[in-house]
């Protein structure tokens, strides 16, 4: 028993802590960038002209349609062939943001379509330009409506951030893999890793819930079950 504790204290704890930080550093920028890309692409898919719309749709088809691991391999192992070298960290954030953005854009697109056309006519009749109308009238409503879906995507992101270790960005799962292959204590190590992810997703759920609460205004309530 004491031997087990010693192992945890001396090796598991510091390694997992280090991995945990790397994971957070991967997730935070990817979540923000992904959301920004999602909003932009979502808007272009609805309000862009024909070629822009087609380009945005193609973007989603590619980044939602190719397995994320494959995308990461291309960024990290493929790009050097054309002379572009990305660090494992940058390649991971890039891969996560683009993939996450493709999914976010789907939620944003749905929310944009749910905004009544009449409000756009009203905005135009007041002299709003199209861009200004989208920014001040449409998006504030669409984002409120898309929030539950986008929150879901951020939870997914937390979990698929574990793929970064496949391109040698040693985050939480990567540290676990190293520990476990050294000690063969797969069950113990990965149970702890699973718990760490559960903590992250639970905190994210609470934060997202608070955000929804704060942005809630009469007429935009989501029915909770």
């Amino acid at each position: 028993m004491t031997e087990g504790w010693l192992y945890i204290q001396a090796e598991v704890y510091p390694a997992l802590l280090k991995g945990f930080w790397v994971s957070l550093q991967l997730i935070a920028p990817s979540a923000l960038l992904g959301l920004a890309i999602g909003i932009m692409v979502g808007v272009l898919r609805i309000y862009g002209n024909r070629p822009v719309m087609a380009a945005a749709n193609t973007f989603v088809a590619i980044f939602r349609g190719i397995p994320l691991v494959v995308q990461l391999f291309i960024w990290y192992f493929g790009l050097p062939h054309i002379g572009i070298y990305l660090s494992p960290f940058v390649a991971s954030v890039l891969g996560f943001s683009l993939c996450s953005g493709a999914y976010h854009s789907e939620y944003i697109r749905g929310a944009l379509l749910s905004i009544k056309r009449g409000q756009m006519l009203a905005a135009q009749s007041l002299g709003f330009s199209k861009v200004r109308m989208i920014i001040s009238i449409i998006l504030p409503q669409a984002i409120r409506r898309a929030l539950p879906g986008c929150g879901n995507e951020i939870i997914y992101l937390i979990k698929y951030s574990s793929l970064a270790y496949m391109i040698t960005c040693i985050e939480l799962t990567g540290q676990g893999k190293i520990l476990a292959s050294n000690s063969f204590k797969y069950t113990e190590v990965f149970l702890m890793i699973g718990a760490c992810y559960l903590v992250m997703t639970s905190v994210a759920t609470i934060v997202l819930g608070r955000m929804e609460e704060r942005l809630r205004i009469p007429g935009f309530e989501h029915r909770r079950t």
Binding site: K116, G118, Q119, L121, A122, A123, Q124, S125, L126, G127, F128, S129, I137, P140, Q141, R144, I217, G219, F220
Partner: peptide, 24 residues
Amino acid sequence: NKRDLYAYRQKVGMIFQDFNLFDH
């Protein structure tokens, strides 16, 4: 001309059958 159009629309108010207030 977009600029002319937006300026003109400011001078012509429009009221709709179903109000079209900004819900947020």
